[in-house]
């Protein structure tokens, strides 16, 4: 079963048309895949097959400790959106339903290095000197 219907693939490609740099989706799973881990991997692979600028890296939550520490992953399935530098954007759980749209937005933002925030907000965020952790709780529907 594919997550992205054949009929929807052109729309996804079009949505990602304004990508600039390549984007890496670092995906964390484990040997015995967790609930929705396999589905998440398949979804990301389908996305990568639609847009060549999207690369997938798969890491094992148990054994790839260096990457787990580096991205500070504490649960799976986890997907980190980056383009070389750390973007700080992570999706925990399968990014399907409404979250698929959020994932496409995140890919575009990272690829274009444009957060879409106002200059005032960006300046205020850049001045922050302590760690900030935002958790946005969502559902796929």
């Amino acid at each position: 079963m594919s997550f992205i219907k054949d009929a929807d693939r052109p729309a996804v490609k079009e949505r990602l048309r304004d990508m600039r740099s390549d984007v890496t989706l670092s995906y964390f799973t484990q040997d015995v895949e967790c609930d929705f881990c396999r589905e998440t991997r398949e979804l990301l692979e389908e996305l990568s097959s639609i847009e060549e600028k999207i690369r997938i890296e798969v890491y094992d939550f148990k054994t790839d400790q260096e990457q787990v520490r580096s991205y500070r992953i504490d649960k799976i399935p986890a997907t980190v959106v980056s383009n070389g530098g750390a973007s700080g954007i992570r999706f925990y759980g399968i990014p399907a339903g409404y979250e698929f749209s959020s994932l496409l937005d995140a890919i575009l933002m990272v690829s274009r290095n444009e957060s879409g925030l106002s200059d005032e907000t960006r300046k205020a965020l850049q001045d922050i000197k302590v760690p900030v952790h935002l958790q946005v709780f969502t559902t796929p529907t």
């Binding site: 609930d35 973007s87 700080g88 990014p95 990272v110 922050i128 952790h133 935002l134 969502t138």
Partner: peptide, 17 residues
Amino acid sequence: MENSLITADAVEISEFP
């Protein structure tokens, strides 16, 4: 994206009750 000290997670609650 604007500051490496800031991390933003989207957490799907049905998978992490």
